[in-house]
Design a protein around this nucleic acid. Structure first.
Length: 651
DNA sequence: GCTTTGACACTTTTT
DNA sequence: GTGTCAAAGC
């Protein structure tokens, strides 16, 4: 089968390489996705059994796109290659080999929110226990969410708690380090007791089990002939270890770009890319340097951003496309004006025959897209937001799912507490007691029902709901429909904007129709969260909705017209990044954002203060307004306000 | 002793 | 919009 794209010699060499492991260094827009797709396609054409090919992608979206495109190209094949994220692959492997993962059979995958809730309990318990024994009780322990991040980072980089703390928390006392370590141990034991699997467990448990068990190792060593990995610069040491167990004899084929490494906060290890040829025997390094995505004007701006760095990125991309329009840089008085202008600009272009899928609005933080969302709702422009708070993370949806989780895994303390607390008169204390009593019943449903009949007599709804979940385990959508009717009178009292939240419950029930068990439903949406705005649209509506997306989620995507919003000081680099390495990563984030645009790039800023900055921090766009050769600058701050602020500042 | 209520702060990026 | 704390209420 021939491709409809014509490949350049760099690409066709990369695609047809034989009898070697390969690392393809592919600059932004040089056809990274295309290379992977064409490579798999080439292998299929050469008669490789699709089941012997594994593709590990960075997001589920990338995997889906790959599968879709291969299906149309190779419609005669009755099976397709396996493609998914590392987490997806490891979890599926755990689920399909229950014999080797006994402990995981009843386990449930928990998301960040649950990790934080669990860590909060651990932090409290350990500190209460610790404090009387210290001199003044003043231990300076990071906040719960920071602890979750810390532990995840330590585990993803495969370092020990103490060695990490002594290196990066130099001011900590011995007691403080000990307390943090105790909290982490407590977290581990609670997690195991309650049969939770966090994101890191999925990778680590799989990697460890394969390392320890020769029989299992053999199964995976023999499973594939070709393993392909996208975005290798964003993989961590654990993921590398997993790869080592899947390849040789299988060939390893990796694609990546060091200038697009933006996940080091999650433990991504650039060495996986940089040391590739040294680590992997019989391997070759190839480069793709020609950009097929963007106009030269857009690339020039991207090059300018990287050139400001003291790092040597070696990334002067050249475009095949003509110069094109200069990127725009526009200053607005505030976020509302910014949002209104963007919506107006998009509507104008739509009236001029543009398609809504030609646009992408990029944001550094999920937070800063809120004003725009409000304006889009007001002006009735359909949109979907990718990234940000997922539907499953909103309070009222958690209430609903807590019941299902508790019923299926009665050891799930967090869920019992959450769910029982929706009833008036039951708070955390009573709920915790109940959950401990339930645990003693050891999954015996009759005993659990008997307990609630006795101890919670005035709440007959509890037993009714539990029985319903147990009865409809195989039909989650039907079950949720029934539960919603039962619980709505109770839960609606808890929220003053119930009307808006009610829709999300219906959405959950609709999404569940695609699954045959609550566990698989929860797993699917924990590993691949959807926002309410995206979930509420049908597949067809999704195609006709404006995409708002965090830059981190936008990796690998492109659009004709890109808006990078809220780009004022504090966004690039983000004000929370402090170290040199963090700031450098922020530069790459901006680089990734700019290189998403194919034809038109509009960078907008909205802030009360502009121009010369008083802060000593580096701001990547500080001098851009004056660079006529790079951007077309427009100032839309109205004069009255400018005067007002000038006076205000000198007062 | 436990739950409810109201006032307040804070809001990076993700599997 | 969610988390946290203290004080009021049962």
């Amino acid at each position: 089968m021939t491709s409809k794209f014509s490949l350049n010699h760099q690409q066709s060499k990369a695609i047809k390489i034989e009898n070697t492991n390969a690392l393809v260094l592919a600059g932004a827009g040089s056809g990274k996705t295309l290379t992977i797709i064409e490579r798999v396609s080439y292998l299929l054409d050469r008669g490789v059994n699709p089941k012997r090919i594994l593709v590990l992608t960075f997001t589920r979206r990338a995997a889906q796109e790959l599968i879709d495109r291969l299906r149309t190209r190779h419609s005669h094949l009755d099976s397709m290659v396996l493609a998914g994220t590392f987490h997806r692959f490891c979890l599926s492997s755990i689920r399909s080999h229950p014999h080797f993962f006994q402990r995981h059979v009843k386990a449930i995958v928990i998301d960040r929110g649950d990790q934080v809730s669990l860590m909060k309990l651990c932090r409290k318990e350990v500190l209460e226990h610790h404090e009387p024994s210290t001199f003044d009780g003043e231990l300076d322990i990071p906040k719960t969410s920071a602890l979750v991040e810390l532990l995840s980072y330590i585990r993803s980089t495969d370092t020990s708690v103490f060695s990490y703390l002594t290196k990066f928390y130099k001011d900590n006392t011995q007691q403080e380090n000990q307390a943090i370590n105790d909290i982490f141990n407590q977290y581990k034991s609670k997690k195991e007791n309650q049969r939770y699997l966090d994101f890191d467990d999925i990778l680590i448990d799989f990697a460890n089990r394969v390392a320890k068990d020769k029989e299992l190792a053999q199964i995976f060593k023999k499973a594939y002939d070709h393993v392909l990995v996208d975005e290798i610069q964003d993989t961590n040491v654990i993921q590398w270890r997993i790869l080592e167990n899947l390849v040789n004899p299988a060939w390893l084929y990796c694609v990546g770009d060091d200038a697009q490494s933006i996940y080091s906060f999650r433990g991504a290890n650039l060495a996986n890319l940089q040391e590739f040829t040294r680590r992997v025997k019989n391997s070759e390094k190839l480069k793709l340097t020609i950009n097929y995505r963007s106009t030269q004007s857009i690339l020039s701006l991207a090059n300018y951003i990287l050139a400001q760095s003291s790092w040597d990125y070696d990334k002067e991309l050249t475009a095949v496309h003509p110069l094109g329009e200069k990127p725009k840089l526009i200053d607005f008085q505030n976020a509302t004006q910014e949002a209104e202008w963007i919506v107006g600009d998009i509507k104008g272009k739509l009236a001029n025959n543009a398609k809504i899928k030609d646009f992408m609005v990029l944001t550094r933080t999920a937070w800063s897209v809120r004003t725009l969302e409000a304006i889009l709702v007001e002006k009735k422009v359909p949109y979907k937001f990718v990234g940000g708070t997922s539907l499953l993370n909103s309070a009222h949806v958690k209430d609903l799912l807590a019941l299902c989780r508790a019923a299926i895994n009665p050891n799930d303390e967090l869920s019992w507490v959450r769910w029982l607390s929706i009833f008036p008169g039951i708070g955390p204390k009573k709920a915790l007691l109940a959950s401990q009593a339930v645990r003693k019943a050891e999954d015996d449903t009759d005993k659990i029902l008997a307990y609630f009949d006795k101890a919670f007599k005035q709440y007959p709804l509890i037993g009714t709901c539990l029985k319903l979940v147990w009865a409809y385990q195989k039909d989650p959508a039907d079950m949720l429909d029934k539960i919603i009717i039962l619980l709505e009178p109770e839960v609606s009292k808890l929220y003053d904007n119930w009307h808006a939240r009610k829709n999300d419950w219906k959405l959950i029930a609709t999404l569940a129709t695609r699954h045959d068990s609550i566990t698989s439903f929860i797993e699917a949406y924990t590993l691949d969260p959807v926002t309410s705005s995206a979930a509420s649209l049908s597949d067809n509506e999704n195609k006709n909705a404006l995409t708002l997306i965090t830059i981190h989620s936008a990796k690998g995507l492109e659009a004709k017209v890109c808006y990078i919003i809220q780009s004022q000081e504090g966004s690039f680099p983000h004000s929370r990044s402090t170290t040199k390495e963090e700031i450098e990563e922020e530069r790459r984030v901006l680089y990734v954002a700019i290189t998403r645009a194919k034809e038109e790039l509009i960078i907008t800023r909205a802030s009360n203060f502009h121009g010369e900055s008083f802060s000593q921090r580096e701001y990547f766009l500080a001098k851009l307004a004056k660079k006529d050769e790079l951007v077309d600058y427009q100032n839309k701050i109205n004069l009255f306000c400018k005067d007002y602020f000038r006076n205000f500042r000198y007062r």
